[in-house]
Design a protein around this nucleic acid. Structure first.
Length: 599
RNA sequence: GGGGUCGUAGUUCAGUUGGUCAGAACGCUGGCCUGUCAAGCCAGAGGCCGCGGGUUCAAGUCCCGUCGACCCCGCCA
């Protein structure tokens, strides 16, 4: 195959942009050969670029150099330049499946700019190969409009975020990528220092401490599209590298943060998806969210809620319930409309799910015209059955799922069930599935308590301001202290979280005392921030939104990997470049590091 | 750290209780074909059944280990 030079050929349009209005124009296009349909005489070629596909038609002609003869020798993914006339398709030939389907390009010239190996998988609209292979050849997978479009959306969102925040008086300020390792929170990615052997930088888990320093600096309103790195185990919605829309403001309280973010989301969804969001977003306190939905990020697209069944089943004589309640536990109930139709196998799968969240079992019983049927029903009197049905507001044909356990386990395991069943429900309710249900969750506990050891640790981070009314309990009953914390939730996903920060040294010291950090510890770990706070720290607060997750939801994808140009696998490997990778012995020597081969 | 699913032509997969099980489709190569758009028709090439060990007369199939991908629990302030 003889290759041509681009020379002074310059394209006039992108393939995917051609429309009826371009009919009659001479166009020059560049792109990749998506597919060839050779009819012996006339020949069709789908040409692809970032913007999409357009059909190019070659009419037969004489001579080996004629465009149609040269086109015959093309292969998949060859890079070509085409000159031709954009013409309307005959009515019967219009293809409404493609955006460019009302026109086609009558080719008058063809240059072959590069050839291509046969790709390892066919580039179709739907993925035609396993994800690992597509990740190894990510640059090919990204040629598929399905994925290219997501990156385009990501770009649009980033632009809207920047322009909106600029309009609100925010400055975009970069913070370091090589930062001080922190013992708190997620595991750090460590970077050894060559100049200081034995000392390490960390890659930032978030710009948290730096953005607070910027508030002390008087920057007032800061934002950044910040890369954040955490060396923790991954999930479909968790990558070791992700991007946060990181925001911090001075002289504000919760209301300013909520209003800002609501305006930002409205702008983003409006400009990028033409979706009109209703503001303000509803709010719910953490306690209610856990009680009603068994989750701190409930999906409100479906409204089924948990019920506390303790009163209904008290002294029922059913040992599991009675003993749990006597021990201070809870009996929680999830009603599933129409769930009586679930097979035994489906019910057992629900129980397995509940067990994964720590439940010892899942009691299931069907609501029939004659009372409850199955599971614990035979141990329950008619009166108790009646009370259960009433408490749940259940109707014939419903399935009642009950968990008797420690309250958090009962709620969380039924919350997982609710979430699973809700996904099924959404399949039958496309309008609900397509809705955007934003929600603020507020009043999180300031501390988390290890159920085994009883040890308290910060639920968000050490610098979160306790709620004013709970300050008196900081010393006496810290576990009940709520923080000025808030999460933004969308359709069951946590989009971001933030808080109003502590700017007063006395409160800071009291909080550190609760989690057992001595003055000496504090000095060593983040003395630099505490020192800064002594020089006139303004009241401040903010939050960070997960850009990747926002894009994932907006694009309707189920994996974060689809929103990132070069993502990592579940084991934090990059298949396209094969990292992480061993390094040469001399590189380790420079760093005064030795690898323990026995591991 | 733990649980689950998967690994067979380039790709997606089928392969029953261990015994013609090396198969299909798509892709690829060659030929035919002047309106297709997942073009069509004919022919052909293409296999370390992830890797290592074991059980057995016999292993793609059963067992153990290992590597990798995916999903989940723990973890991720």
């Amino acid at each position: 195959m003889n290759l041509d030079h681009l020379a002074d050929f310059r394209r006039t349009h992108r393939c995917g942009d051609l429309r009826r209005e371009h009919a009659g124009q001479v166009v020059r296009l560049c792109g990749w050969v998506h597919r060839l349909r050779d009819h012996g005489g006339v020949m069709f070629l789908d040409l692809r670029d970032r913007a999409g596909l357009v059909q190019v038609i070659f009419r037969p002609g004489e001579g080996a150099d004629h465009p149609s003869e040269r086109a015959r020798r093309l292969g998949s993914e060859f890079v070509i330049a085409v000159e031709g006339t954009c013409v309307p398709r005959p009515d019967s030939m219009v293809n409404l499946q493609m955006p460019t389907g009302t026109v086609e390009v009558e080719a008058t010239g063809l240059s072959v700019l590069n050839d291509s190996q046969t790709p390892p998988f066919v580039l179709e609209e739907a993925p035609s190969a396993g994800e690992d292979l597509r990740l190894e050849y990510r640059y090919l997978d990204l040629r598929r409009p399905e994925l290219a479009t997501v990156l385009g959306m990501r770009h649009r969102v980033a632009q809207v975020v920047r322009s909106h925040l600029d309009g609100q008086g925010f400055w975009e300020i970069e913070t370091p990528m090589l930062v001080r390792p922190t013992p708190e929170g997620a595991r750090d990615y460590l970077v050894p220092s060559r100049v200081h052997p034995g000392s390490f930088y960390a890659l930032p888990q978030s710009p948290q401490l730096y953005k607070q320093l910027l508030m002390v600096s008087g920057m007032d309103r800061y934002y950044q599209l910040a890369r954040c790195l955490r060396d923790e185990d991954l999930r479909a919605d968790r990558q070791p590298e992700h991007t946060q829309i990181d925001i911090e403001m001075s002289f504000i309280g919760e209301e300013e943060v909520f209003a800002l973010i609501e305006g930002l989301m409205r702008e983003v969804f409006g400009r990028v998806l033409s979706a009109e969001l209703a503001v303000p977003f509803p709010r719910m306190v953490y306690r209610e969210s856990m009680d009603r939905y068994g989750s701190d990020k409930p999906d409100l697209r479906f409204d089924f809620a948990l019920t506390d069944a303790a009163d209904a089943v008290r002294d029922s004589g059913f040992k599991v319930f009675d003993e749990t309640l006597a021990a201070g536990g809870s009996v929680m109930l999830l009603r599933w409309p129409g769930g009586a139709a679930f097979s035994r196998k489906e019910q057992d799968e629900l129980e397995d799910l509940a067990k994964r969240y720590g439940a010892k079992g899942l009691a299931r019983t069907k609501v029939t015209s004659a009372g409850l049927d199955g599971g614990p029903a035979k141990f329950l009197s008619a009166a108790v059955q009646q009370r259960l049905v009433e408490a749940a507001g259940a109707a014939e044909g419903d399935l009642l799922c009950l968990v008797a356990d420690r309250r958090d386990i009962a709620c969380r395991s039924l919350g997982a069930l609710r979430s699973r069943l809700g996904q099924e429900w959404l399949k039958g309710h496309p309008d609900a599935a397509k809705s955007w249900r934003f929600l603020w969750i507020t009043e999180f506990p300031l501390f988390e308590q290890d159920p085994q050891t009883g040890v308290l640790s910060p639920a968000h981070h050490l610098f979160t301001m306790p709620m004013e009314e709970d300050l008196p309990f900081l010393a006496s009953d810290p576990a009940r202290v709520r923080g000025r914390l808030y999460d933004l939730v969308l359709n069951g996903s946590e989009l971001g979280s933030g808080s109003i920060r502590i700017h007063r040294r006395d409160i800071q010291e009291a909080v550190m005392q609760v989690v057992g950090i001595t003055g000496e510890d504090a000095e060593r770990r983040f003395g630099f921030l505490l020192k800064a706070f002594q020089y006139g720290a303004p009241p401040h607060g903010g939050l960070a939104l997960g850009l990747d997750r926002i894009i994932m939801l907006m694009a309707g994808r189920s994996s974060l990997r689809d929103t990132i140009a070069f993502p990592k696998t579940t084991s934090a490997s990059s298949l396209v470049d094969g990292c992480p990778a061993p390094v040469a012995a001399e590189d380790l020597r420079d760093l005064k590091l030795r690898v323990d081969a026995g591991m």
